[in-house]
Design a protein around this nucleic acid. Structure first.
Lengths: 131, 131
DNA sequence: CAGCATCCGTAAGGATACTG
DNA sequence: CAGTATCCTTACGGATGCTG
């Protein structure tokens, strides 16, 4: 696609995004999002409960994810001194507050899923034209 | 932390999250979020403009990110046949619609940043107690 | 059942150099 | 200036086995 050069040189505001990037790293974790999503609609879940709820997660990844979320104060961990042992994970107040913006994103995702797929199709079509 | 076992066994709804996971993979990209964030407040930007705007991004990663976003119909690419060459990147309508939920998340991030840091501090304190 | 440690394969990502 | 290709390092992430 070729066009004529515009006059406006475009200027970016690079200040507020830096701190944002730190958080993105934290949120932009597939498993973390899944865990928060499930906990948001289930009061509390046990370790294997989450394992079963989240399709492709490995034992290891779930552990790491939960520790990370716990560390950031998103989820709370409650261990019961029973045999066999039992651990409940639940969202903290902070975690519940995260649920809202996250569900906004989920809504957007579901809403525009088909558009994205269509765009990909179109993109592939143009790529095929280079043969 | 030890507590007594509750009665409710907890049940999870594992249906709606599966499709969500597909999108998370797409959104959960640090650089992609940065690019969208910058383009959302700048009309259009050139390649090197984005490079300068986004602190830690490498030449390669920016290229890959832009191609991905372009492929998904989030950004549009406009090349000018000038010397030196010039390419403008801008958000598409789809990309602009993504801006809203994304800024929700950014707001949350800025809003709770201190809470997360506090939680981490607390977490580290408890870890240090195990020495 | 929950969690940690170890091993190991893969690929994500940075640096660099080259083309148009 | 914009983009591609190559190399090379790292750490992400899966499988497995052991402890409480």
């Amino acid at each position: 696609m070729i066009a004529e050069p515009p006059v406006a040189p475009a200027s970016g505001t690079a200040s507020e995004c830096k701190a944002l990037g730190q958080i993105i790293d934290r949120i932009a974790d597939k498993w973390a999002v899944m865990v928060v999503g499930h906990l948001s609609q289930a009061e509390s879940l046990r370790f294997n409960g989450l394992m079963r709820a989240i399709p492709g997660v490995s034992h290891r990844m779930l552990t790491l994810t939960l520790r990370g979320l716990q560390r950031d104060g998103i989820v709370s961990r409650t261990a019961f001194a029973t045999i066999p042992p039992r651990v409940d994970y639940a969202l903290t107040a902070l975690g519940r507050s995260l649920t809202e913006p996250l569900s906004q994103l989920a809504l957007w995702a579901g809403d525009h899923q088909s558009e994205i797929e269509a765009a990909r199709q179109h993109y592939n079509d143009e790529a095929a034209r280079d043969d």
